[in-house]
Amino acid sequence: MNLNNTSRPVVFSFLAIGLLALITYSNTINTPDLENKLQLLSKQASQLNLQINQSILLHSLEINNNYDQLTELTLKIESIQHDFSLLEDRTKALKNGNIITALNKVTLRLNEKIDSIETFKSNNAIYTSSKLFANKLIHELKSNRSLSPSEKQQLSHLQSIVSSKTPSFTEIASQHQQNKHLELLTQHAKLVILYKNKNRALIKNISSNQLFFAIDYLDSVIYQYLIWSDKKTQAIQNIVLMTLFLALLIPLYSVIYPSKPKS
């Protein structure tokens, strides 16, 4: 095709505008959707994490008496974990090692948290049940006047263990009890100690900052990726614009300062 000095810049300009439009369009279609979804999920997970920790705290203080609220929160965080898993393939397609690692870490921590919550609920139920029953036994034994002085002493000791905030196994004497009720009370006092201690470890685990840090890391790597991809797009746009201006300027220069025809 034979292009003269006037039509060349027009053709170049159209090509450049087309290219710019294409870059912008592909940028709008491909990039922000996945990252925004990941960021939104990580924020929801972060908020639920805090609410779960709050609920666990209330259970540990024996303020919350049923698991409906904690269960609802756990189901929501399970649903977020499911949504993260649905985005796994698309995240891999980003070919960004940091995001993939961060997402894996979040999924792992979410799994750990959900498992720990379910274990906490089961353990706490045994603890609560044994404590309630132990208190019933204590009440009945106290009203039993046929207890020997040593049995009374043991009863008082077991009562202090059951109501203690930091019960220890070493406090329970391993001697065989003659009184069946006292024997049963000893067994339940042991359960109270065992599950109280298990719960303490679980609460520490559930409320630890590991999930918070994992979510925070995911958030920051996505943010970095967004900045990087934005800069990349801008750089490409600038290069195209520069090329376009050069393509326009050169013919303009030749029009404004036409070279004299050689004689």
């Binding site: 409906d68 089961s122 049940s129």
Partner: peptide, 16 residues
């Protein structure tokens, strides 16, 4: 007797 430790909530159980 502590039955309520497991059978609690709106459904008297079903949540653990």
């Amino acid at each position: 007797y502590g039955c309520i430790a497991c059978h609690q909530g709106v459904n008297a159980g079903g949540n653990m």
